[in-house]
Nucleic acid binder design. Structure first.
Lengths: 178, 178
DNA sequence: GAATAAAAACCGTCCAGGTAGTATAGTGAA
DNA sequence: TTCACTATACTACCTGGACGGTTTTTATTC
């Protein structure tokens, strides 16, 4: 193998294009150029545009899953491990979010079914969150609030100031422990 | 004027296409057919695709603004009018949400600047919500949770059951009054 | 360790099909 | 006469994907 990372470089390139130039500019040729590969080379790894977008979603779903799982595993608390990890990862990590945004938008545009891995992920988490020792309704509200941050970043809408975001984070965490 | 509603019919048609068939199927011709208008007729009202999408966003922003404003005006409470209205409208109305989804996705795809009317709207609301007599951090969390519902509906991801959604709604409302 | 074979990882061009936007001629209603 | 369209034709452009090469890696044998 030339580089085990070639496929992943292509996925990053695709995400970058979606983030910076929008979905309509996610063409095979543009992706190939951004990734520094020929169009034929790209098609070798991803035989269609849909396959490319599927690759994006699958990759980021897996990434996110590992991220949360690691955080849960490292937690020393007994109750609310999952919701705490979910909030931590989403509030504190900027990296996977941007790729997540691009992947979500691309999948929604190309073929909604491609979102299935994300759906599975969220369903799993919801189950864990609801059975983690704290009031499920409270836990759900915290999850929703965390998702709200997401929405605002996804569309660059009513972005909170860093201070307010931090205050929200602190209050949510405190609420988990109550 | 033949019908004052022609332009709006076209906007509904465009939203419908985005919702049902995705952004890539929002072509001028498809929109014309869906609206029962000729392509020339469509271009008479919206001289370009971007103008069409701008029309979608402007229209729904205005709609949403009126909806919230009406709810606020009807409120008999003294404190937390805005956050209460925001939660009510978003939780209880399915109509404007779907159009909102389509508009957001279309604008994000075509040209992010088209989202500006929505940004303005959200900034206004955030200001109102933070100065409505209740703890601004609490109010922000409630707004974020409400937006979280949105995100889940937008991508059809981890949709809550109606019961859980209702429980969340009830708990949030109770929290406002605390 | 050199030679060789085969598989993997690419490259670059071509084309059919689709799309935004233009143009133009015409129609019915107010 | 103007407004609010209809209907059709046309163009210039772009894109996905097919296809037929070519180079680089890896595995195998001598």
């Amino acid at each position: 193998m030339a580089r085990a990372t070639r496929k992943i470089e292509i996925l990053h390139a695709a995400s970058k294009i979606v983030s910076e130039r929008g979905i309509f500019n996610l063409t095979l040729e543009a992706t190939a150029i951004e990734a520094g590969v020929s169009k034929g080379g790209l098609l070798y790894h991803f035989p269609s545009k849909e396959a490319l977008v599927k690759g994006m979603v699958d990759h980021l779903a897996e990434n996110y899953r590992v991220k949360i799982a690691t955080s849960v595993a490292e937690s020393s608390k007994e109750k609310g491990k999952w919701i705490r990890s979910y909030a931590d990862v989403t509030f504190k990590n900027t990296y996977p979010n941007k790729e997540m945004h691009a992947g979500l938008l691309a999948a929604k545009a190309v073929n909604s079914d491609l979102l299935d891995p994300i759906r599975d992920l969220y369903n799993e988490w919801q189950t864990e969150i609801e059975n983690d020792g704290i009031d499920p309704v409270k836990a759900t509200i915290i999850r929703l609030a965390t998702d709200g941050i997401w929405l605002s970043e996804l569309f660059d809408i009513h972005r909170l100031s860093e201070e307010r975001k931090e205050e929200v984070y602190v209050k949510l965490k405190k609420w988990i422990d109550e």
